[in-house]
Design a protein around this nucleic acid. Sequence first.
DNA 1: TTATTTTTGTAGTCATCGCTCCATAAATCC
DNA 2: GGATTTATGGAGCGATGACTACAAAAATAA
Lengths: 217, 217
Amino acid sequence: MTTKIIVDTQAATKTAPTRRGRGRPQSFDRAQALCAAMRLFWDRGYDGTSFDDLTAAMGISASSFYNAFGSKEALYQETIDAYVKRAGAWFTTILQEPTDTRSTFAHLLTTAATEFTRDDLPTGCMIAAAATQCAPTQARLRDLLATQRTQSETALVTRLQQGIQAGDLPPDTDIKALAAFYSALLRGMAVQARDGIPRERLHEIARIAMQAWPTPP
Amino acid sequence: MTTKIIVDTQAATKTAPTRRGRGRPQSFDRAQALCAAMRLFWDRGYDGTSFDDLTAAMGISASSFYNAFGSKEALYQETIDAYVKRAGAWFTTILQEPTDTRSTFAHLLTTAATEFTRDDLPTGCMIAAAATQCAPTQARLRDLLATQRTQSETALVTRLQQGIQAGDLPPDTDIKALAAFYSALLRGMAVQARDGIPRERLHEIARIAMQAWPTPP
DNA sequence: TTATTTTTGTAGTCATCGCTCCATAAATCC
DNA sequence: GGATTTATGGAGCGATGACTACAAAAATAA
């Protein structure tokens, strides 16, 4: 029932097989720096995280920063990717579990309740409510995040479609609407988490939300 | 069933009875300027709205700005107040309607679906997901918004409590959890709205959410 | 009319923002 | 060893952020 989440830096490092080549070697662990940046962006958002905040947390200088990551915006995109692949991996993992559709969604919500209130990571979700209000100059960023949100909702649609094929759900179920409902709920839970709601309350929300699960006719 | 929302500037002006006194008179309509600022903050958030954006939209100079509103942060607080009292008034209005509790909540959700997708105002809610990720220097702002969110959830709790007293709800209903559920959903719907979800889809979400309403034993 | 009060317009100020330049350091290739 | 390549440290840059100083303008009070 529990899902093992790996956010540790060491584990991340293994995926970066220490490139050997000419030139002076990097004096810092790129994956570790990326992880530090992700936590900062997650906690404070894009605008709320200054360049100096980043270099300080990553333990590198401005030149190393630009040499390794290109720009603040490029780094942000990388941290979003890292979040999806690592800290937020529970989402896709659970959707691939070989249980029935209702159990899968119940598991998704209870895991969200737990993940959104971990004490070793920022609360809530890095993407759920990010950049919904931003300057027109940040349109690319807003679109990037909106796209991520759309993709996660699409993943719910896909899983519900499989549920219909498996006979878990009535064939006439409005799966787009049902996906939108659980999607909205998860985003709201993320906001609640950032406001400091207790984990147990989030679990109660999850329990109530499963009451809305469609009943066979 | 429909709720009349007044956001028009003219209507707002009537509450400011044109102070007469010594000194040069203000050359602009304060309520109108406040309304323009509210729309800007609502659409772009606090950080995403620059001082120049504000003065341009309000049609006033920097000195007039500070003379009339004190600071950017003070203006933001005023716009939040204006939002709660005017553009977001449907929320408290509906909670005071003399219908049964279930109908009240159903009305709340369908109205949210409609209000979050008006074409004469920014989409979504000004407060629902604002400043959940921000710099530590903006702690006051974040707390201000978190407080507003807490208050709206408390209003739901109060209404549910009345429902128990009226016999609309089973006495053992976990009203705090139920309020948290609908609160989370509304916030998620606001995020969806900002991502451009169609109004009809929001109405479907509202319909599904009412399936979670507690059933008498 | 003159004094007083308040608002306005213009031209700044100062801090911070993300970012860049360039000389130097540390590795590999020949 | 010398050439080449890549990364680092440190200084600083232009743009923008919110905000302010100050004199002139426009009203009322005496």
